[in-house]
Computed example of a mutant assay.
Amino acid sequence: MAYVPVPKDLTAVKTKVLFNLTKRQLVCFSGGALVGVPLFFLLKGPAGFSAGAASLCMVLVMLPFFLTAVYEKNGLPMEKIVRNIFRVLFLRPKQRPYQTNNYYAVLARQSQLDKEVRRIVGKKAKTGCEAVIVPRREASDRSRRRKGPADR
Rank of each mutant, 00 (worst) to 15 (best):
Y3A: 14
V6D: 03
K8D: 11
K8T: 13
K14D: 01
T15Q: 12
T15I: 11
K16C: 06
V17F: 06
V17Y: 08
L18Q: 07
N20M: 03
T22L: 01
T22V: 08
K23T: 10
K23Y: 06
R24F: 15
R24W: 14
V27E: 01
S30Y: 04
S30R: 06
G31S: 15
G31T: 02
L34H: 05
V37F: 14
F40V: 02
F41Q: 08
F41R: 06
F41K: 05
F41V: 10
L43I: 03
K44N: 13
P46M: 08
A47E: 07
A47R: 08
G48E: 05
G48C: 07
F49T: 01
S50D: 15
S50N: 13
S50Q: 03
S50F: 05
S50T: 15
A51Y: 04
A51Q: 10
G52P: 00
A54R: 02
S55I: 08
S55N: 04
S55Y: 03
L56I: 12
M58D: 00
L60Y: 05
V61F: 06
M62K: 00
L63N: 05
P64Y: 01
P64M: 01
T68W: 00
T68P: 00
A69R: 00
A69W: 00
V70A: 06
V70M: 04
E72M: 02
E72Y: 01
N74L: 06
G75E: 01
M78A: 15
E79V: 04
I81D: 00
I81T: 02
R83M: 09
R83E: 15
R83N: 10
N84F: 02
V88L: 15
V88A: 15
F90V: 09
F90S: 04
K94E: 06
K94A: 13
Q95T: 07
Y98P: 00
T100F: 04
N101A: 10
N102A: 07
N102C: 07
Y104W: 08
Y104Q: 12
Y104E: 12
A105T: 06
V106M: 05
L107E: 14
Q110M: 14
Q110C: 12
Q110E: 13
S111M: 07
D114C: 09
E116Q: 15
V117E: 06
R118N: 11
R118Y: 12
R119N: 10
R119S: 11
I120P: 00
I120E: 14
G122C: 09
G122R: 13
G122W: 05
G122S: 15
K123W: 05
K124R: 15
A125M: 13
T127P: 01
T127R: 07
T127M: 08
T127V: 08
G128Y: 09
G128M: 10
C129S: 13
C129V: 11
A131K: 13
I133Q: 13
I133D: 13
V134L: 14
P135W: 03
E138A: 09
E138Q: 11
E138I: 02
S143C: 05
S143Q: 11
R144Q: 10
R144C: 03
R145L: 13
K147F: 09
G148T: 14
P149I: 13
A150Y: 09
A150C: 05
D151P: 02
D151A: 10
R152L: 14
